[in-house]
Design a protein around this nucleic acid. Structure first.
Lengths: 131, 131
DNA sequence: CCGGATCCTATTTGATACTG
DNA sequence: CAGTATCAAATAGGATCCGG
């Protein structure tokens, strides 16, 4: 702990971009947020089923980080067997446009099948030239 | 090589989100893209000056990854001293709405000063949790 | 059902020195 | 100026077992 690597970037113009990305960091936060946006409230194992290749440990971990960031709310029901619900906080919900933008770009420019990635160049399909 | 960690997620609904994020992954890609969007073309050290805490090694690495992803174009001028320009490809430019969304959210919900992060809740205007 | 605790490996990043 | 090369540290992620 002698020298904590700069957790975030410098306070420079690009900072807001990095700040936002820092909340989406980790292998599963994007999908988690996506599913919570879609379904509203999900239990732990419901989330797990929607993200088959995530391990219990990592799902827990990423959910805790999202919770700590104030994006996700965790509700524990004192019942047996245990029941824990996850849903987005207002702050989490406010990420909707961000997730939407990420999703849109992915749908337009990446073909994702069977775990493989293929790029789709912009001119090949839509000549939406904004340059 | 026995079991390569799934590089990407499953081909599930959240996939486009994850795909896009995978291109922005790494500590500096966000800022790099931001600055290239802002300034159009930048030389290596110009980029470095805009991102003071990035190391030479990392800047090179991330730029190479962006190049390989087809988002950034690298131009080497055969002169002495060397000159290398970086600019976005059309595909890279198409990320503009994504970066804009990330940036907007960051500006609205995160205060980033002196390397510290403070959240700004959507309803409460004052960050009562800042400790 | 929802985790926490351990252990272990892979990947990422940083520090530093060197080069055409 | 724009990198490479090496080494070491830190982190992330996965596998597995345990527990209320």
């Amino acid at each position: 702990m002698s020298k904590p690597r700069a957790k975030l970037t410098d306070n420079f113009p690009g900072c807001p971009v990095e700040s936002t990305l820092s909340f989406l960091d980790g292998k599963w936060k994007g999908v988690i947020l996506y599913h919570l946006l879609e379904d509203g409230t999900l239990r732990f194992n419901e989330l797990r089923r929607r993200i088959p290749s995530v391990t219990q440990r990592m799902l827990t971990k990423q959910l805790r980080e999202l919770e700590e960031a104030g994006l996700v709310e965790r509700t524990v029901f004192p019942v047996v067997p245990p029941r824990v619900d996850y849903k987005l906080t207002p702050l989490g919900l406010s990420l909707e446009p961000v997730i939407a933008a990420l999703r849109l770009w992915g749908k337009e420019h990446v073909i994702c099948e069977n775990g493989r990635k293929y790029m789709v160049m912009p001119e090949a399909k839509t000549p939406s030239k904004a340059a």
